[in-house]
């Protein structure tokens, strides 16, 4: 019995564990090793440089700027995504007709590829010519067309990127919140009503939100990590064959160009940057966890 259990365990877990080891843990470990070497155009470097790559990356204003931009982006996008997805969840959860329909409608964008959505946003909704969707709507009100992704003053590209990200991500976090909402025992609300709490803000504030605490923590943490790991929609909306502009450049996009850019590969600096980014995410996540759970 025990032996067959063990065998079953390895049968089911084995392939996954091997894949995880080979394709996730070994590359992560290797990347840390590479970050201490001069690894240009090689993944088996011999030239140990100590902390030089780290010093270079910490002195690289472009890298620091992208870390700064995305810290600010996280401060903005994390609460926004959380609040909007909670609001959606509350609305969908309260609705009595066609609940499954609305739940699916809001969740569906999660199944859409980031690349496809980016192209739709960039090429059809927010293109800069007069017949683009957004510009057609503006045209009804007599406004001039706006070059959405090309305009830097004001930086309209943020509107494109943020709406795209929200459209793609809200549904998923909404589902997490709905699951959380459905686990709140009904009798808590009934007890509150008997005690004189009014449905609406009072029960939301004193019953729903405290009961959703664990879900909220999870949503915020996932969101924070996702904000620093932004890549796909930024790369596909703002990137061109000639590279990526210096604004709204996610750290991962910058590191991608550093390690695999067109002028040769530099895995040492790329890996050092990746390790620094991982440390930053860990630090911010821990700090956020401390603040929330206090």
């Amino acid at each position: 019995m025990t032996r067959s259990n063990t065998r079953a365990f390895w049968l089911f877990v084995g392939p996954f564990a091997v894949g995880l080891l080979a394709f996730v843990y070994v590359p992560i470990g290797w990347s840390v090793v590479l970050s201490f070497f001069d690894a240009r155009n090689t993944v088996t470097p011999t030239d140990f440089v100590g902390l030089d790559n780290y010093a270079d990356m910490l002195g690289d204003t472009a890298f620091l700027r992208s870390l700064g931009t995305f810290s600010a982006f996280a401060v903005f996008i994390v609460p926004l995504t959380a609040v909007l997805s909670l609001a959606l969840a509350l609305l969908v959860n309260q609705i009595t007709v066609m609940q499954a329909f609305f739940r699916s409608v809001f969740f569906l964008p999660t199944a859409c590829s980031y690349v496809v959505a980016s192209l739709v946003w960039k090429l059809s909704i927010f293109n800069g010519v007069r017949y683009g969707l957004a510009n057609t709507v503006l045209g009804w009100f007599g406004a001039d067309p706006i070059a959405w992704t090309a305009s830097t003053d004001p930086p309209w590209y943020w509107l494109v990127l943020v709406t795209l990200r929200l459209w793609l991500q809200l549904g998923f976090y909404m589902v997490l919140f709905i699951a959380g909402l459905q686990r709140i025992p009904r009798h808590l609300y009934e007890a509150a009503w008997i005690d004189g709490a009014k449905p609406g803000w009072q029960t939301l504030r004193h019953i729903t939100l405290p009961q959703l605490r664990t879900t909220t923590v999870a949503v915020l943490l996932l969101n924070l990590v996702a904000a620093y790991q932004a890549f796909d929609e930024f790369y596909n909306v703002l990137g061109t064959a000639r590279g990526y502009p210096p604004f709204a450049r996610p750290p991962l996009v910058y590191l991608y160009y550093t390690s695999l850019g067109s002028g040769g590969q530099d895995f040492g600096h790329g890996s050092a940057g990746a390790v620094l980014l991982a440390l930053l995410i860990a630090a911010v996540t821990l700090a956020q966890g401390k603040v929330i759970t206090r």
């Binding site: 472009a62 830097t152 003053d153 000639r242 590279g243 502009p245 210096p246 002028g263 530099d266």
Partner: peptide, 25 residues
């Protein structure tokens, strides 16, 4: 358009500078 010794470090630095000067003033 892309000489052999115009590495990605140099082109990124140059393109960033041009972009900031032209697009962001």
């Amino acid at each position: 358009s892309n000489p052999p010794d115009w590495t990605s470090v140099m082109s990124t630095a140059f393109n960033d500078a041009v972009s900031r000067a032209v697009r962001e003033g």
